[in-house]
Design a protein around this nucleic acid. Structure first.
Lengths: 151, 151
DNA sequence: AGTCTAAATGAAAACGACTTTCATTTTCAA
DNA sequence: TTGAAAATGAAAGTCGTTTTCATTTAGACT
């Protein structure tokens, strides 16, 4: 990792090491806050902005990407070889991945038809996961939690 | 419109009338700021929060929905009968719609396979539109404009 | 090992879109 | 006409994100 970063002009530091490690240990999508909390448990002197900057850096060097489901929180997703879509549970905020090969093929064709040069694809289903759909039958008006309230 | 709102417990006002009219005149996706500017040209005494609240109201009564492409700006999209995806130009911020019937069918199946109860689908391609891809060959690292800068 | 420069850090402040508050005005049903 | 509920405008508040700035540190080069 140190060498990898060096080739891109970045230095390794103890803080960075810890942040990178912590991020790659996780398998799910993490927000800055979540990673900050996790990292703080190991080194409580690390600042929030350092965590933030390093997540941005991980994206910049191509090892993660931002996921934005519209609830106002940016999450960071490991970049895997296979592109995937997200099932986002409106209730428990869980993100579940699913395969989108077939869909990407269709989208690539769509873009091409419209002379649009695609950089990335976003495929997302919002709804209720298996657990949450058991109880949560009501309250589904299409607004996100945050936007639910209106006066 | 007045009657329609009345049935839902809302009142009509001159400001609301103007805001609704202005919104429905537009065919494209508008942000609060954009609508605020448009509305101000007709009545410069209208407040920003009134425009914001009325866009929320239009959503609430089911005539529009929020679109969030991850650039930090919420746009409001007219609800049409046909569901559609969005081509978002990273450069000029234009949103272009496209048909997604086939894809929705696949996604519905996917959700069903995972016992996920879908409420809405989001299908989006980020990239460069025909005009912008003519010059903008560089600068495509997957970051949105806003997130481009890092220190 | 010592020195230098660019990069990295932490704390705090700034930013910006969104949302709420509050005093006042307006709508509309009775 | 009148009163309760809803709507408005201005201003302030919220909150995740981003930048600033003074200081420290990494790593290249003597």
């Amino acid at each position: 990792m140190r060498e990898f970063l060096k080739t891109k002009g970045f230095k390794m530091t103890p803080q960075r090491e810890l942040i990178f490690r912590s991020f790659f240990e996780l398998t799910d999508h993490v927000s800055v806050d979540e990673l900050y909390i996790k990292v703080r448990k190991k080194d409580s002197s690390i600042g929030y902005s350092t965590v933030w900057r390093n997540l941005k850096l991980i994206c910049k060097v191509g090892l993660a990407e931002e996921v934005n489901v519209g609830d106002g929180i940016t999450r960071y997703d490991h970049i895997t070889k296979v592109p995937h879509g997200h099932l986002f549970c409106i209730n428990c905020k869980k993100l579940i991945e699913f395969n989108v090969e077939q869909i990407i093929a269709i989208l690539a064709q769509t873009a091409s038809d419209k002379n649009f040069a695609p950089e990335s694809f976003k495929i997302e289903i919002q709804g209720y996961c298996e657990e949450c759909s058991k109880d949560n039958k009501s309250d589904s008006n299409g607004f996100s939690q945050k936007q639910q309230k209106l006066n």
